[in-house]
Write a protein that binds this DNA or RNA. Sequence first.
RNA 1: GCCGGUGUGAUGGAAUUGGUAGACGUAGUGGACUCAAAAUCCACCGGUAGCGAUACCGUGCCGGUUCGAGCCCGGCCACCGGCACCA
Length: 803
Amino acid sequence: MKYDFTAIEQKWHKIWDEKQLYKAETGGDKKKFYALIEFPYPSGAGLHVGHARPYTAMDVIARKHRMQGENVLFPMGYDAFGLPTENYAIKNHIHPAIVTKNNIETFRGQLQALGYSFDWDREINTTDPKYFKWTQWIFLQLYKNGLAYKTKMPVNWCTSCKCVLANEEVVEGVCERCGSPVIRKEQSQWMLRITKYAQRLLDDLDEVDFIDRVKLQQRNWIGRSTGAEVRFETTAGDTVTVFTTRPDTLFGATYMVLSPEHALMEKWMDKLENAAEVKAYQAAAAAKSDMERTELSKEKTGVKLAGVMGINPVNGKKIPIFISDYVLATYGTGAIMAVPAHDERDWDFAKKFGCEIIEVVKGGNVQEAPFTDCATGVMVNSDFLDGMSVEEAKKAIIAYLTEKGIGEAKVNFKLRDWVFSRQRYWGEPIPIVHCPKCGTVPLDEKELPLLLPQVDSYEPTDDGQSPLAKMTDWVNTTCPCCGGPAKRETDTMPQWAGSSWYYLRYMDPHNDDALASKEALEYWSPVDWYNGGMEHTTLHLLYSRFWHKFLYDIGVVPTKEPYAKRTSHGMILGEGGIKMSKSRGNVINPTDVIAEYGADTMRTYIIFIGDFEKAASWATNAVKGCKRFLDKVWNLAETVTDHETAYSAKNEAILHKTIKKVSSDIDTLKGNTALAALMTLCNELTDNGCNAAELKTLLQLLSPFAPHICDEIWELHGFEGICSVSSWPTYDEAKCKDSEIDMAVQVNGKLRGTIHVAADLDNDSVVAAATADEKVSAFLARLGGSIVKTIVVKNKLVNLIVK
RNA sequence: GCCGGUGUGAUGGAAUUGGUAGACGUAGUGGACUCAAAAUCCACCGGUAGCGAUACCGUGCCGGUUCGAGCCCGGCCACCGGCACCA
């Protein structure tokens, strides 16, 4: 019989579905295992091979855990709010909800064709009102707890999307999504106070099993730095507070710099002798886009304030004050003390503007270059700090500042609050009402979900208002508080909202009374293993950790962290290592691969392609290799006619070894080497002959990777049950060893021969066998000298040292 | 600039974490089967020299530690990713 993959795969999809083979039950005695992958955005282009890599890898893990007798939750859904759908809807005059529905159907079909063992009863969709009811509910809780607030602030504005972006969505000064320039714009925005959780988001990374590069990237993004805030008096009578990580260098502070947007500038404007020049500089800085600001970063610019001086609090010296855009309004206090002798930026600025450079840490020539080494320097020119190390001086100065009331220790974070509003249609409406009498009023929870209005046009306005603002019927409402006329908030939530808690909904997706029942949350939390892309590390992953911690604080979820373990996959590139893109025409569609080679081949190849964590390029030729392998398994099965229940002596060792290898490789995401071991096993069984017991084990080990063909062969041979849910084979460590082995023989560290000996042979016998070997003894004779030392590595090699 | 990562045959990649470098798969070469092709099967497949046994060289480059280094240490080079005036 021929291996007819299309018929086999369709047959088993039906059986799996009918028998509800992959259904997860909340509760019970079995150990639970919650495997999660990032749900896709259902774009019009359909599923991409890039999706297939992490999805297949996690399906393999889920299937193995299921075979090990665990209660596995492996769910799937769609993160369906977002701009591409909205833009498509605008262009083609179709409602985004219809576009979304169609796209989801395509995605579901493709995912099912790949044979993933999802529990389809738990499928979710973030645009479903039953789902976003709870997204809005969480927002209301954030609001009630003071973590959501509206403020006028300079925001990142994408000129093409006509929409506000979060800091995390701006990449190198351009919009992450469309690549258009991002400018600064003053606008009133909803914000989430993620900064309140900065320390906990940082600390709790120690408690989770995330791969190092994810932890590192989150740590850098949170960007904790310790130092001090110091208050400088000025001749204008106002106090300027600065943040510094080097309070030890305070005696070397020879000028100050304020950001152009600093609040005091307005107040001081009348007193300044060069007000016109200062205003011109502020205007120029404001007009710069983020891109221009970074591009111009090398050459420092600024203006010295004429008429106001700062006073160094430790020595009373009058020092000049500048404004410059190298000082950021949004970090620290928006003002710095400048110590040109020991800071590169300050040094550059001081050289250009002729400021004084005073050495306070000995170790370099500060007139030539800034000296920034904290480890070796000794304090000088610093009064009571002289002679101390940098570390000692930091402690001493902070104690001094605190005592005198002019400063104190301070921790700062790079992490900014999360800009949470978007001026677009296709997102969750923010459940807030603005009342002229009562101000900002949250919607009553009973009013949820607050649905989007049906509109004719979803186009954003040029003045930065949401398309919803035009829908007066919807906007005009009554105040939940006083009953008077009021207006609805017209901004919607960003795409990150729905994905910040979706893993909780999977635990109990049909619940209308809560985002999930207490029982389900207790049973399934936390996610045991979450795999996703590195690009979500500082966005989705951080945002959802924040929401989870908040939900923990208000008693909704039982764990501090949402995900116990996080891994990440490399990208799939096109043939030849180039990025896959529509414009290059090198996009591989999984559906085409399935049609030509079958889902099992597709799955096997995407795992075999290489190191899971690294980028890998698609090679259609190598796909054929995986098809050949499955053909070989099919052909091997056809040779098996017995009903043997024990392994043959000849194949016993390799079977035990392969079970061991495949088991541990799946657990460590090394599917590529697991498959290599299975190929080797298949080749051996083909050469040695294969009985029913041996075939059974091969099928079970291969089943997580290629479930359809294994279930089919399993059934054809009349094995009991269904292979996909049979029990994972076990191995005996003692039987993993061969009785006779090859050992390497080295002379002075170089390979000179191999010997075939009994395993676990004692050292003396090994040396005897080595010296007796024909090649080795001939070499030793030629070399002359005598053996002065022997090193034996058990069952591996023997090294003879000859002098 | 700072922080991480990577560098192995023609090619994707292995290497039990200091112990026979190149598993497994592609591609290639030769052969079998075939009228022929596809498919399949067998053999070879890092480089140089040699009919050969074999010898020497070989994991980005230079040096070190070790009986022994792809793996550890020091110094370079190249590429990839993240951050980027964060005081």
